[in-house]
Design a protein around this nucleic acid. Structure first.
Lengths: 201, 201
DNA sequence: CCCCTTGACATACGCCTCGTATGTGAGCGA
DNA sequence: TCGCTCACATACGAGGCGTATGTCAAGGGG
């Protein structure tokens, strides 16, 4: 039981730093987040940071990977609960839009992440959200519900549309009203993928 | 003739600083661009910068406004050259995607801009690109070509899809091939807006 | 013609932050 | 028990931003 005492403590501290970083990055933004304050908030110093992570960017990488995994899991659940694949795709889109309303996701994943770490399509973990969308589209094409479009292209554009919608909703004075408009528009655009003009039951 | 000698020189210096900032921000990114180097590159010092602009962010604001205006003008020309409004909308989308391939636009307008200045939908100049797209959609709805969707919602999602496509193309190893896939997918999504399943001649 | 004000810019300074190099004390093997 | 290792703290240097202060040309009044 006294086996990995050091390692366990280190993992605990890593987790604490990541938790603090999520909060700091989300509220102050990456650039304005001070590593001194961040580490002190969990009773450590910058020494711990640069021992556990490569640098400030490395900490952001860790945060992004964690959030990315959480988002993918949530999207997976939403899709599996839908009555059919097509509605699953639409539900994914809505869920994505709603997730992007959360300040943490918006700030870290959609604003600072791309600016600091570069294009999300090159992130390791392959941007799990996109991966799920693509899988759904592929399945719909195989079932003949969706036109035989390029899967990656369609997935990326759909995600982009949802993201844009989310940012719009997030910045709106009247989020509820705007949210419904955004979801409607998303469905209209997505319907362009359908082989038949009418949606499947 | 010797009337506004001071003012003219100042305008000239302002323009030079903005030009230098466009280059520096595009190549190094906003955060890594040193104001000392930037001003020295045009034979000035930071004193001139903080006299002409509020601060580093203020310089970015000026750069963003300038680029935004240029993009709007280019989009306007593309739209006007199209044979009909619907093709104009598609051409705008393609043009937008292609513009986002330019490192300057990509880095400043799509990455650092939103991260530093906040959501683009709140930028003054109203994000002229979006404005044009919305006007086109409104006209198409009035002509009965496009479904009566919410104009702003449709415009924002279309722009978002195009933006996402652009980032994808920009980061691709094989830009040419990916570009055509992206444009195809954009047209498929846009076709969801059509009242009739088939495109107008 | 001189002086004085104004404004555009340069210079100098303080503060903060990041990254690294060095110190230190607890844990684990021999 | 001795000593090595490693996780972390401390100390230091470099650089960047923003501001306060200095300076010199341009223009107006006497």
């Amino acid at each position: 039981m006294a086996k990995g005492k050091r390692a366990a403590a280190m993992a605990e501290n890593r987790a604490r730093l990541i938790r603090a970083a999520r909060a700091a990055f989300a509220t102050q933004g990456y650039a304005d987040a001070s590593m001194d304050e961040l580490t002190a908030a969990v009773g450590l110093t910058r020494g711990a940071l640069y021992h556990n992570f490569e640098d400030k960017k490395g900490l952001l990488w860790a945060v992004v990977e964690q959030i990315d995994g959480e988002m993918a899991e949530r999207l997976r659940i939403v899709r599996e609960q839908a009555p059919n694949p097509w509605l699953g795709l639409l539900a994914e889109g809505s869920a994505y839009i709603e997730m992007a309303l959360e300040p943490e996701i918006q700030r870290i994943m959609l604003l600072d992440g791309p600016a600091v770490l570069g294009d999300p399509s090159k992130w390791p973990g392959e941007n799990a959200c996109l991966d799920i969308t693509m899988r759904t589209i592929r399945a719909l094409i195989e079932q003949g519900i969706v036109k035989p479009v390029d899967v990656e292209a369609a997935g990326r554009l759909l995600n982009g549309a949802a993201l844009s919608a989310a940012l719009w909703v997030a910045a709106a004075d009247d989020p509820k009203n705007v949210l419904s408009k955004a979801v409607d528009a998303f469905r209209v655009l997505a319907s362009g993928l359908l082989r038949e003009a009418r949606e499947p039951a």
